[in-house]
Design a protein around this nucleic acid. Sequence first.
DNA 1: CATGGCAATGAACAATCTGTGCAGCGGTAT
DNA 2: ATACCGCTGCACAGATTGTTCATTGCCATG
Lengths: 161, 161
Amino acid sequence: MGVDELDGRLLELLAAEPRIGVLEASRRLGVARGTVQARLDRLQSTGVIRGFGPDVDPAALGYPVTAFATLEIKQGQGADVRAHLATVPEVLELHTITGHGDMLCRLVARSNADLQRVIDRVVGFAGIVRASTAIVMENPVPLRIVPLVRKASGPADRGGA
Amino acid sequence: MGVDELDGRLLELLAAEPRIGVLEASRRLGVARGTVQARLDRLQSTGVIRGFGPDVDPAALGYPVTAFATLEIKQGQGADVRAHLATVPEVLELHTITGHGDMLCRLVARSNADLQRVIDRVVGFAGIVRASTAIVMENPVPLRIVPLVRKASGPADRGGA
DNA sequence: CATGGCAATGAACAATCTGTGCAGCGGTAT
DNA sequence: ATACCGCTGCACAGATTGTTCATTGCCATG
């Protein structure tokens, strides 16, 4: 299990130029086309690569405001709250986290004012006791995976510090 | 600006079957190939679609533990802290948020024990005063965009409630 | 109402890539 | 030594891509 150095380079290449084809990738990596195809198939079947979904920018859709909300849930209401949040389009992501049996969700909105509407909708549900919201101002490190891939495919990926 | 109904359907289609080609997409959407090509070009040039980066699963790379850490930063140390965190591969994402001039970052680790190592590395920096970590247990709503696209491309996307 | 601009259509072409199969060639584990 | 596995190179038919062009319907402007 895991990824070797070639897998790592392939992933990096795909991250840098996602629309690249198998043939071109094989040229860049200096291996046979069949090898790249086999690696790609394996990476996908083992779940390392979940897919190649388009990376859509919410801001460009008219939702430039991002926020994280920590929700305090009433005991036993977890499932209901999850179902409720799943119906809100502005909820991009939801996690249950340790702490107070709470949840953390990522929200987007059209404006700060609109964020209020979103939050009202999110917390307007019986199972939610309280919500604490933090608005994102900057995003110095956008979601990334290459550094981790590099580490995981490195010569010795011992978890050690 | 914004996306119309056809853009919306195209984005949904791409989200569902990322490896689909322009030709096949045009067949599915019932429009001419040139139209799909033009829409795609426009979506990319306007930044709605940032790219098609491979969606890599950290868990499959050997990092099954995800956590969110809220960091309290010493005044004026923001830039240094950002630079520091950018060098940590396990930091997948970093935001500056409202609250206490703090930051929120997403971390992954090989295990709960390993998470300790990661956190030590993250907070082992002069500019960071304190860190509060929440470990992710479940992820009921994985990062998604389709519902928002659907809303944004809907007949009347008035921000109103 | 007439004109100009814009987006979509349908078609055509050369060049390229994909899916697939096959035989040869190490390197490794048994 | 022997079997197994992954990589290489090659070959082929079929499908897709990048482009360009002329035509057409629709909308806003004049």
